[in-house]
Design a protein around this nucleic acid. Structure first.
Length: 895
RNA sequence: GGGCGAUUAGCUCAGUGGGAGAGCGCUUCGUUCACACCGAAGAGGUCCGGGGUUCGAAACCCCGAUCGCCCACCA
């Protein structure tokens, strides 16, 4: 359509002709930083001026790069942070990094290996210096990438898990737990990674079903012979017993006797233990207490010795056999060969799929190994962590994922926290000359000569488990803790519910139970580290497949940011984020989000060219057209919906709702109707001004609502539109107290329905769009003139087309209808076919509604609004049939 | 071995008791000045299968199938 040239000369807004995110986003972020918008002020909270809202960023590994999972995680956190900031909360979003013990040490060791060196060539002190050097040079690339994404974190509070303050927190809580008997040292079977040469906790072990070979070996001879099966043949060198079930009659006569261990010659007892399942295999099992957790327990019950036969490198050691020095896999073959030589292999090459543990870092097969390590006694801590969720002090969202959490906290084994590494928090325990042990707090002096500190460091998750409060200054009493602890919400993927969330809950509830460490800080509600956990899913590729390096289907979010803008990447991720559910992403979808940003840009620019501006005084209801009232009502609904959805962490639905309002309603209909009003308004300054004010009002609120999702483009447009300082600190839109105008909504619905019908008619008839189709209104009262004007603009109706046949489209009240003139070149057979099809559909609809309306049980039980809806459907279908039949007869008559 | 989730248009997914939806893709038409990163009109689905509850089921219950994920010390 064409706007009249008689309207006032458009003002050219201070906006470029086309939106280019790359030239806008980086400077905008710099401006935000310079203005200090992201800085949190404790005093505003402590004084009661504002409510505090806090999030700690899940610290990325210092070795890490921004991957698409981070981009999702960060986008959702930023949406919450920006939304709360606009809502008037004092927001603290605290960033930082994790030292990532094994990962980082491995990485630096690999660099040393290039020069043929190992960490031992440097020694502990120098090696750690080298890691720090690396950290300062190339670590933390992700922090720069976060800026590119637009994260509104408070950079002045950036923390690192090895910072002095955090180290002090680690040492403090270690000593507290040590003194409480919750940390102990013991010789246990632990997961040992021969590649990394360190102990691992359960969660650092990935299990996979590997194909193995089950080998049956005969121990003893003659009547005393007993056959056992194993997949780890080499461990027989460390056997110290054979176990059978106590009620297994087959072996009852052997229990209490001994048998010679093949190849070694030691005599080992046959014991009865109910752990053995008589139905499995031969019902007899070899017992290797030093290299199998079950066997260790059996050994303990029966007082069996544990003989270690594997070194830290997983080589056979100390057996006094020729196998000493072989690695475990060589030994497996060699021992089997030797046993075969003695005729002791009863069966072999039996394929057996069984679960094998692999180091999550190096991939090496983990070896269960008896070892002296430090442990956290988990049961009491896990109980408290579980209760906090059971009692609702911490809510898990979505709630069904709480089941997984309980599964974990209710079944966790004691946690191996010592690591045979150098990079990390060194265990604050010293050993004295007389075998004494002393745990040293951060304020204490280390003991003097003759004492040595434990060489091991703590599991990385020990320090990251303290993250919510260690970053806020604990164990010192701090205003930050008082203002912002416990944190408001923890946002993370459900995949680290066990790894991280549960550990933070354990430490947080432990401290909470002790009055938060007894220092009086954050005394209210500080019994949990966060009040809500909002879990999102994993990002997958466009076919729903998990992204991985080996599959080559991983994506680089930065490449997309460069190509389409950070807003586009953020909006795509937000749109796909349904609580706890995985989502797929593809470049095409990012492109779609970019298009949305462009659409928003063009719409705003156009509106500004046509006088869009914030009204200086409230809109006068009397000056508003039905279209105005409709769009303002819809804006209220969208504002209320968006706010409610964000409060419920329904990011995807919130984004979706804004997308459709902005594009399908505001751009597609209101802007088109506004053109009509501007055209008419050329002679009516009040109408012109009102339209500009409505455009300004809607855009102002829409840009605010979208700002948390797409902060850059909205900021640029909003400052241009309103001259305001920044959306970052602009107030979140409120729902107006204006009553919803249902008549206006009906008016617009009618315009939409009729417009669509007329367009379809033209399309079906193959009429060129350049050809005018007249749409004349018949009936109705005076208010119809505005309707007619709107309709004629939207459909390009014109006078050139003379009328004969008519399609009657009834309005809701039936008082107005539209006549289309179709005398020229109508494709009669095609039109008849279309009408016949529509008629059939209408009849089907009548059947469906009739069957309900004549159904007495339905009429008795169905709620009134449902019945009303069905009556309306029936009425509409009835009218359709009448109209379609009439037109069909006309057409048939003319052909 | 235990637990959880999914199955809706070609693809990715919303919809959880009352007329089958969105984005992308596809077909046709259109560069009349906000936007071709656009507009208009369309095509396309026995809502995995089978039972049940209900006036009414894509939705609730049961059984089954397929896929996926998590946990797990069965030699």
């Amino acid at each position: 359509m064409t706007l009249s040239t008689s309207r006032p000369a458009p003002t050219t807004p201070d906006l470029p002709a086309q939106y280019d995110p790359s030239s806008v986003e980086v400077p905008l972020y710099r401006r935000w930083l310079a203005a200090g918008y992201f800085h949190a002020d404790e005093q505003r909270v402590l004084s009661g001026e504002r409510s505090g809202f806090s999030i700690v960023l899940p610290p990325p590994n210092v070795t890490g790069d921004l991957h698409v999972g981070h981009a999702l995680d960060h986008t959702l956190m930023d949406i919450l942070a920006r939304w709360h900031r606009m809502s008037g909360d004092e927001v603290l979003w605290l960033p930082g990094m994790d030292h990532a013990g094994i990962a980082t040490q491995n990485l630096v060791e690999k660099q040393l290996a290039v020069d043929g060196k190992t960490r031992h060539d440097y020694g502990r002190e120098l090696f750690i210096e080298k890691v720090w050097d690396w950290k300062h040079e190339s670590g933390g690339a992700i922090l720069g990438q976060m800026k590119r994404l637009g994260d509104s974190v408070d950079w002045s509070r950036e923390r690192f898990t090895l910072d002095d303050g955090l180290s002090s927190a680690v040492q403090t809580i270690f000593k507290m737990m040590f003194d409480d008997g919750l940390i102990y040292r013991a010789e246990r079977i632990i997961n040992w990674c021969p590649g990394c040469m360190t102990a691992l906790s359960d969660i650092e072990v990935d299990h996979s079903d590997d194909a193995g070979e089950l080998v049956s070996i005969r121990y003893g001879d003659g009547d005393d012979a007993i056959v056992v099966a194993t997949t780890r043949v080499e461990t027989m060198l460390g056997d110290t017993a054979i176990a059978v079930h106590p009620e297994d009659q087959r072996y009852a006569h052997l229990v209490g006797t001994t048998v010679a261990l093949p190849l070694v010659g030691r005599r080992i007892p046959i014991v009865a233990d109910s752990h053995v399942e008589p139905e499995f295999g031969t019902g007899a099992v070899k017992v290797t207490p030093a290299h199998d957790p079950n066997d260790f327990e059996i050994g303990r019950r029966h007082g069996l010795p544990a003989i270690t036969i594997l070194s830290e490198e997983a080589d056979i050691v100390g057996t006094g056999t020729p196998f000493d020095g072989l690695n475990r896999f060589e030994a497996r073959a060699a021992v089997k060969e030797a046993l075969r030589g003695e005729g002791r292999i009863v069966a072999e090459k039996i394929p057996y799929l069984h679960s094998v543990g692999h180091c999550s870092r190096s991939g090496d097969v983990v070896e269960p190994r008896l070892s002296l390590q430090w442990f956290v006694k988990v049961a009491p801590l896990a109980k408290a962590a579980g209760d906090a969720v059971r009692e609702g002090r911490t809510r898990i969202h979505p709630p069904d994922l709480a089941a997984r959490y309980f599964d974990w906290v209710d079944n966790m084994h004691d946690w191996t926290i010592s690591r045979q590494l150098w990079w990390g928090h060194r265990i604050p325990v010293w050993y004295g000359p007389e075998g004494e042990i002393r745990c040293i707090g951060p304020a204490e002096e280390p003991p003097g000569a003759g004492w040595t500190q434990d060489p091991d460091v703590l599991d990385t998750w020990f320090s990251s488990g303290l993250w919510p409060f260690s970053t806020m200054g604990w164990p010192e009493q701090s205003d930050t803790l008082r203002a912002f602890y416990p944190t408001s919400v923890l946002v993370t993927g459900y995949d680290i519910l066990f790894f991280w969330v549960a550990r933070m809950m354990m430490f947080g509830t432990y401290l909470g139970g002790k009055g938060f460490g007894g220092n009086g800080a954050a005394d209210k509600g500080a019994d949990v580290p966060f009040t809500t956990v909002a879990l999102h899913g994993l990002v997958r590729d466009q076919y729903g497949k998990k992204m991985s390096k080996s599959k080559g289907n991983g994506v680089d979010p930065l490449a997309w940011i460069e190509k389409f803008g950070a807003d586009a990447v953020r909006f795509t991720l937000a749109r796909g984020a349904n609580p706890g559910a995985d989502q797929a992403i593809a470049e095409k979808w990012v492109e779609g989000s970019r298009n949305f940003c462009s659409k928003l840009f063009n719409a705003t620019r156009f509106a500004m060219m046509n006088g869009a501006a914030l009204p200086s005084e409230p809109l006068a209801a009397s000056a508003l057209t039905p279209a105005d009232r409709w769009v303002l009502d819809r804006l209220d609904e969208v504002t209320a919906d968006t706010t409610a959805l964000l409060a419920d962490f329904q990011f995807g639905k919130a984004a979706e709702g804004l997308y459709h309002f902005a594009w399908d309603e505001f751009c597609d209909w209101y802007l088109e109707l506004a053109k009509v009003q501007i055209l008419d308004g050329a002679a009516d300054p009040v109408r012109l001004a009102t339209t500009g004010a409505v455009l300004g009002t809607v855009l102002d609120a829409l840009l605010k609502l979208l700002h948390p999702f797409i902060p850059f483009v909205t900021e640029m447009l909003w400052t241009a539109l309103t001259g305001g300082e920044s959306l970052v600190v602009a107030p979140w839109p409120a729902v107006s107290d204006r009553a919803v105008d249902t008549a206006a909504a009906g008016w617009v619905a009618d315009v939409q329905a009729l417009t669509t019908e007329i367009r379809r008619f033209r399309s079906d008839q193959g009429l060129a769009p350049s050809r005018k189709v007249p749409a004349r209104l018949a009936g109705g009262d005076g208010s119809v003139s505005a309707f007619a004007a709107a309709l004629s603009r939207l459909t390009d109706a014109g006078p050139e087309f003379a009328a004969t046949a008519a399609i009657e489209a009834a309005l809701a009240d039936g008082s107005v209808h539209v006549e289309l003139d179709t005398s020229t070149a109508v494709d009669v057979p095609a039109e008849i076919a279309r009408l016949t099809k529509d008629l059939a559909l209408a009849h089907k609809e009548i059947e469906a509604t009739d069957s309900k309306l004549t159904n007495t049980s339905f009429m008795q039980k169905a709620p009134e609004h449902v019945v009303e809806k069905i009556r309306a459907r029936a009425a509409r279908a009835g009218a359709d049939i009448e109209r379609l039949t009439a037109r069909l007869e006309t057409l048939k008559g003319s052909s």
